[in-house]
Design a protein around this nucleic acid. Structure first.
Lengths: 193, 193, 193, 193
DNA sequence: TGGTAAACGAGACGGTACGTCGAGTCTTAGG
DNA sequence: CCTAAGACTCGACGTACCGTCTCGTTTACCA
């Protein structure tokens, strides 16, 4: 089948090589030249597929099947949220995903294309999945009726991102429990009137 | 103490120039050569003071007096938190601070020195200030007695960082109100058992 | 033989530019950056071809066809030597060759590679050509039978180099005549036995 | 006379240090910074005495007493010339004088001040001394009456400079003998008419 | 003999160029 | 036409010295 002269084969090889190299030296020191050489591929073959180093990297990271972040539905919303948060945090805890994801977000800070693609391909699906699960819970009366559902993903994941990106404190299961506890219970002294 | 012969004059000029240029072209495209040229300074004069572009930039951003982020104490903890959050968000909303702060955090993702310095010089003081204000509120019974105070800064600012860095959605006063409401009221359906 | 993909085109352009610049500002003030800029070429493209400014300069000077320094054979050895010496001196008298050749030799004084290349590519062929012509003359009995032929080139050109490099006195046709006269006649009071 | 507050002491130290360093790394890699540091002297202290690196070097080389190049007068002009040539060549043969003198002449090729100073301070006295000795010999009838005395220094030393600067062939006593023999006997076949 | 101006060490300074590196584009030869 | 290879332009890197210019601090003259 030579009609498809951009063989999917090479696309895969390149992404895998990019990922391997990124693990070894980090995104910042990743060079297209090194990727091309190690993949045994001409630089043009890479640029024919991705317009820049950043977008190759993004593609490589996001395509490397990060699975298991869909919400289960056991009927217990807190347990289900906890489950997904734990899984996410486990993923980020074990190399290379934490550093790679960090660097990807770092790159997004001065590269609107990366920022947009990251949102579209990762953040929004994740948000939507969480929202769907929360909707179900709401219908089952497991949430405060007046709670601002659209905010929920941000309130729950915001602190995780804050630790990942800013303070680099560990995100332990215990931390997640405290976080869920705090967010579900609220800071206020009593049921607000 | 003969080490201190570097004129504060130049130090100031360089940081200001770096800041100006960063506003114009962004941190990513900021070059030491451009800073040196525009500041009318030799490159060595810069490298004598900062070991890298990243640390110059950090210094420039953090030294450019960002003030007004200390917590007032009007006796109303929610109002006081709101006040500071509004001010922070106003700062980030108006150029150049938002983009610069974003890029600074972006750089921190692959530069441990920047990450450490950012934490020490900006995040930790900010956290401590918030915590102090919350302690006062707690003593005055304005908070749920069991609330996890150490988490509070993360829970409140996490979502803001999430918007700033990830989704780039606007952080309006209304959004802050919704956030405070959600966090104070909690997600749970009733007085928790 | 894939090594040869460097376009001869660029090679030529670079040497010509180097030569032009050297004429304008001299070798000492010649900079690789200036050559690259004026030639519209990346610095690497230069460094890929020549390992140093010195060797580029040498190549540029020696490649810029200096012709007409081969010995004629009119049958009169003195006239033929005179002819070549006059031509050499004319070449050096008119800019830019004099200064360029001087500076090239200057560079050779602290750069063995330049010294070696200069010898191989210019001095030795010149010496050999002179020696050949002298051999012919000898066979024709135009030279003292016991004269040290291997010395001849040095005895005749040495004084020219001395003037070129050390005293910078002019090398006029008259001077050449005096030199030939002196060397052919000898300093001694009479025919040595 | 307070003008003279520059201690001769330091002047001497600096020249000696320059010379030492030049021996170690060569003139080309000699840096004023290194001279200053090793001499334990501020850079200004050097620049107060010499206007440039080149002139410091010249001064250092020429001041380091090169003696014994004056012509003796034993009555035998050939023997006397030979004596001085041998001594000169011995000096240049043993490090560091050969390389240093070469580099000095190299520098003179693009530095008129050095060239001028070198001529005035070294070449001209040397020439004058030789000429004086030749004059005596002429009066004593040891030279061909019509020989061009002004040329003599050039004819004799030219070949030596040629070897020193261009071909780097050794200048042995034997070579000097051959040179003297050739120059005194002349290249021509007979007593010239 | 103490006061003061120069010479001094130290090294910061504005500049210029170095040689290296990598991004992204372009060229060549082969299949 | 797509590919591997790698040359190309461009621009920035961080370094090294140049020769100049402050800084205090000796020194050594002279008042």
């Amino acid at each position: 089948m030579n009609a498809r002269r951009r063989s999917a084969d090479r696309t895969e090889t390149i992404m895998q090589t990019a990922l391997d190299l990124a693990r070894e030296v980090g995104y910042a020191k990743l060079s297209m030249e090194a990727v091309a050489t190690r993949a045994g591929v001409g630089k043009d073959t890479i640029y024919r597929r991705w317009p820049s180093k950043a977008l190759l990297f993004l593609d490589a990271v996001l395509s490397s099947r990060i699975t298991g972040l869909e919400h289960p539905d056991t009927g217990d919303i807190v347990a289900d949220l906890r489950e997904v948060m734990i899984r996410a945090v486990d993923l980020l805890a074990q190399p290379p995903w934490g550093p790679l994801y960090q660097e990807l977000i770092g790159e997004a800070q001065h590269n609107p294309e990366v920022a947009a693609a990251l949102n579209e391909r990762f953040i929004q699906p994740q948000t939507a999945d969480t929202l769907a699960r929360l909707k179900t819970a709401e219908e089952q009366g497991q949430l405060a009726p007046e709670f601002d559902l659209d905010l929920a993903f941000e309130v729950l994941s915001g602190p995780l991102y804050f630790r990942l990106l800013i303070t680099h404190q560990p995100m332990t299961p215990d931390y997640i429990d405290r976080l869920l506890q705090a967010v579900f219970a609220g800071m206020g002294p009593q049921p607000q009137s």
